[in-house]
Computed example of a mutant assay.
Amino acid sequence: MKKPGTRHRARKRAVDLLFEAEAKGVSAAELVVQRREYVREDESIGVINDYTATVIDGITADSAQVDAVIESHLTDWKLSRLPAVDRAILRLATWEMFNSLDVDPMVAVDEAIQLARELSTDESPAFVNGVLGRIVELAPQVRAAQAAQPAARPAVEPHASE
Rank of each mutant, 00 (worst) to 15 (best):
M1W: 06
K3T: 15
P4V: 10
G5F: 05
T6Y: 07
T6N: 09
T6M: 11
H8E: 14
H8N: 04
R9P: 09
A10G: 11
K12N: 13
R13D: 15
R13K: 14
R13M: 12
A14W: 01
V15L: 03
V15K: 02
D16K: 09
L17Y: 04
L18R: 06
F19T: 15
K24L: 14
V26R: 14
V26A: 11
V26F: 04
S27M: 08
S27W: 03
A28K: 07
A29V: 01
E30W: 04
L31A: 09
V32R: 04
V32K: 02
V33S: 15
V33M: 11
Q34I: 07
R35W: 06
R35P: 07
R35V: 02
R36K: 14
E37A: 15
V39L: 06
V39Y: 05
V39I: 12
V39R: 07
E41F: 13
D42N: 15
E43F: 04
S44Y: 00
S44K: 02
I45E: 15
G46A: 06
V47L: 14
V47I: 11
V47N: 07
I48H: 01
D50Y: 01
D50S: 11
Y51P: 00
T52H: 04
T52Q: 07
T52S: 12
T54V: 01
V55N: 02
I56P: 08
G58L: 11
I59H: 03
T60I: 02
A61Y: 03
A61V: 02
A61K: 09
D62P: 00
D62V: 02
D62G: 04
S63Q: 10
S63Y: 00
Q65G: 09
V66W: 02
V66F: 02
V66H: 02
V66N: 03
D67W: 00
D67K: 08
A68G: 13
H73M: 06
L74R: 11
L74P: 12
T75Q: 11
T75Y: 01
T75L: 08
D76M: 10
K78N: 15
K78C: 13
K78D: 15
R81A: 15
R81G: 06
R81H: 12
R81N: 15
R81T: 14
L82P: 04
P83W: 00
D86N: 13
D86Y: 00
D86G: 01
A88T: 09
L92D: 09
A93E: 10
A93P: 02
A93F: 08
W95P: 01
E96F: 00
E96L: 04
L101G: 10
P105F: 05
P105R: 03
P105Q: 05
M106T: 10
V107W: 00
V107G: 00
A108L: 01
V109H: 05
D110L: 06
D110T: 08
D110F: 08
I113L: 10
I113Y: 09
I113R: 12
Q114M: 13
Q114F: 13
L115S: 12
A116F: 01
R117K: 12
E118N: 09
E118L: 12
T121A: 12
E123R: 12
S124Y: 02
S124K: 03
P125D: 11
P125R: 01
P125Y: 06
P125V: 05
F127S: 13
V128M: 10
V128T: 14
V128F: 09
V128C: 09
N129Q: 13
N129K: 08
V131Q: 07
V131F: 03
L132Q: 07
G133N: 06
G133D: 06
R134S: 14
V136S: 07
E137N: 11
